Computed example of a mutant assay.
Amino acid sequence: MAIAAVAKEPKTARGRKTLRKLLDAARDEFGTWGYHDASVAGITTRAGIAQGTFYIYFESKEEIFRDLVLDLGHQLREHLNEELSTVTGRIEAERMGLAAFIAFVRNNNSLYRIVMEAQFVDEAVYRQYFTDFADAYTENLERATAAGEIRPGGCAERAWAIMGISIFLGLRFGIWDRETPINQVVDAVMDMLENGLRP
């Protein structure tokens, strides 16, 4: 069952701007301190917004954290969609998508800390973060299979497997090692995805 975003969509442009400020500040606060040491006061100070305004949008620190996890997933999917907007084949989409993902992680250092901590704060939102990706990914692989771009096989299983590869590559080359050229990483992984491990 999908979890709806906690914050109600503001009706005014000013309200949407305030909500965006709060979510961006929450990303920085949780990314810096972690869930337990972060505070509503820290979020509102970063946002430059009165603490009372926070409670117009969220009831608690947990609610904004939940909303932030879903928001980060949405931002990442939008980034990937934009980067892949001109790609036509599935194999090229895998290549470009992996490169875009690692680049996104390098530019959004708090992503891993926040998403991984979500499993201990709210397991349902943690699952939804990944399930939303997997569902869309499965559909893309099914379309590519129907178009003859990739060979038939379990698309859901493939989606989760490739996501798993991406998660650890993002950790290794997006967080721990930001010096290795992204193309070098992508070339090595795509060779394995396209050709397998069999000699």
Rank of each mutant, 00 (worst) to 15 (best):
G48C: 04
G52W: 10
A47R: 14
G154M: 14
Y137W: 12
R14V: 00
R27I: 00
D135V: 06
T32R: 11
T88N: 02
R106L: 01
E94M: 03
Y126W: 15
H79Y: 08
A159V: 13
L169W: 11
E9L: 15
S166K: 09
F104G: 02
Q51N: 12
E142T: 10
N195F: 11
E82C: 08
R158Y: 05
E62G: 05
V6Y: 12
T131N: 07
T53D: 08
M192L: 14
T86L: 06
L80N: 02
S85W: 13
R90E: 10
Y55G: 00
L141V: 04
W176G: 00
R27P: 03
F130D: 08
I150G: 11
P10S: 07
I56F: 08
F120L: 07
R66G: 00
F168R: 15
G48A: 00
R46I: 01
K17S: 05
I150C: 14
A161Q: 05
T131P: 04
T145C: 01
R90I: 09
K8Q: 14
G154K: 15
R158L: 04
A134P: 13
N140V: 04
F168V: 11
Y129C: 13
I43H: 10
A2L: 10
N195P: 12
G42K: 11
A13V: 11
R127G: 03
P152S: 05
M116T: 11
A26N: 13
M190T: 13
E179M: 06
M1R: 14
T131L: 07
A124M: 07
N107L: 03
G48E: 05
L169S: 07
G31R: 02
A124N: 11
